[in-house]
Amino acid sequence: MEKQRVLVVDDDREIVNAIAINLQNEGYEVLKAYDGLQALDIISTQNIQLIILDVMMPKLDGLSATLKIREEKNIPIIILSAKSEDTDKILGLSMGADDYVTKPFNTMELMARVKSQLRRYLRLGDVNVTNRANLLQSGGLCFDLESHTLTVDGEPVRLTATETKIMELLMRFPGRIFPAEEIYERVWEEPAYKVENTVMVHIRRIREKIEINPKEPKYLKVVWGIGYKIEKI
């Protein structure tokens, strides 16, 4: 199988090198760029499957580069940024990036995200073919209503019966916030009394199964003081 090619863009050469070594260890072919314009050059001339892009760069910053790339290509972009505010993340994702990793990052986490994005990108064709009405989707999450199975970026996830019910409920209404009581009543089908703990335990377990970094969940989120939701992506 042909090696997948990843473009790493950062004005800090050492960071680029470190990421490159890790990617090569994982079996990817790595291309390097040190500013936005260079990156655009490489993208237009080479066949690339994924881009890791820093935001604060000379000549052309990461966000503008993302916009330019999205004009033509659909390849996954992981934004790498020292900015860790929610607003920065939302901005990056809305510009067309697929994932957002804050510096300083955990290498393992970054690799997992790279893998996940590539899997999704490369199987995109399959997903499109199998796109049916009984499939619930949010970003890389995909819940099959027929088989009651959940896949994350194409990888199946093993869930217990209760966890499956919870995910089905939340995936039916992405973005809607469910208080613990409602989740309990609809999943356990019993009157809810002091259920916050029970629901939270399940949510936490599901998060550990579907999220790359459960501490900074991408899909299954706690809305503090209100309830739980699946992010609508």
Binding site: E14, I15, A82, K83, K103, P104, F105
Partner: peptide
Amino acid sequence: ITNVSHDLKTPLTSIISYVDLLNK
């Protein structure tokens, strides 16, 4: 604040990355 944060985080990213490589 933003700049200092960026300037501190960038070298720290390198450190963490290379320490991680050393770990391996």
